[in-house]
Design a protein around this nucleic acid. Structure first.
Lengths: 119, 119
DNA sequence: GCGTATAGGGATAAAATTCACCCTATGCAA
DNA sequence: TTGCATAGGGTGAATTTTATCCCTATACGC
């Protein structure tokens, strides 16, 4: 069992928020699900840079944190669908703003100093 | 010189945004500066859980990304002040929303499943 | 039978991030 | 003189986070 050594900073709102959405792919997953993707395989196709494993794990954490619901259909081959909970939906204004802010610069990265080098 | 092995995902807005604010203390620093803190020592006092070194480094990255300005006063002992740039100010709606979302649950963490155990 | 698709998990390696410690330099106060 | 405050950097270890690889199980089509 893994035991954390350094306490998380849950003293401020930011820390609390980052505890929930702070995984590399979590904000993307929330956005994808909001945009209509439901099944794990869809989410994997939408995020080809993410390994299958990480998406599985991060989806599970989002579920444990009450951000998404996991619905299992008893069929074969397996079918699973994810939905945003009310708590998850309450994140949307923030998530959408995050996506929009960054999207501004997708087409003009030169306006973000030091980033043009990275790209 | 450190060389990144895994490419960042700068394909979507979220990835771009996280590239800028994705450090452990960066959102807090932006918020602190917006709330009036200017000098490094103030910021260190406001974030006692963060090591001095990390704050210095993350402030430098925020500056390199054009989010804050660093103003050096030629006095002794040294005096430095940080200010949000226009680009930095454009992050505020998002940052404030992030802080507010999490702050809701500071007083009632039991409403965030699985988090009550952590605290 | 073999390959594909579905969904998921365990174990371990690799990478990225953060921490801890030591160093510079100057002025002021006790 | 010693201690404190100011601001910053270099280095290597510790910690956390991701990635990689291999495993389960079932139905379908060829």
């Amino acid at each position: 069992m893994y035991e954390r050594k350094i306490p998380k900073n849950l003293d401020c709102g930011m820390g609390m928020t980052m505890e929930i959405i702070g995984g590399k792919w979590k904000p993307c997953l929330i956005l994808n699900i909001h945009n209509g993707a439901k099944r794990p395989s869809e989410l994997q196709r939408l995020n080809p840079l993410a390994s299958r494993r990480v998406l599985t794990v991060q989806l599970k954490e989002l579920e444990e944190h009450g951000i998404i619901n996991r619905v299992v259909y008893p069929v074969l081959p397996p079918k699973v669908e994810y939905f945003l909970t009310d708590l998850g939906k309450s994140l949307l204004p923030m998530i959408l703003l995050m996506d929009e802010w960054g999207a501004q610069y997708l087409s003009k990265p030169e306006e973000l100093p030091k980033l043009k080098k990275v790209i």
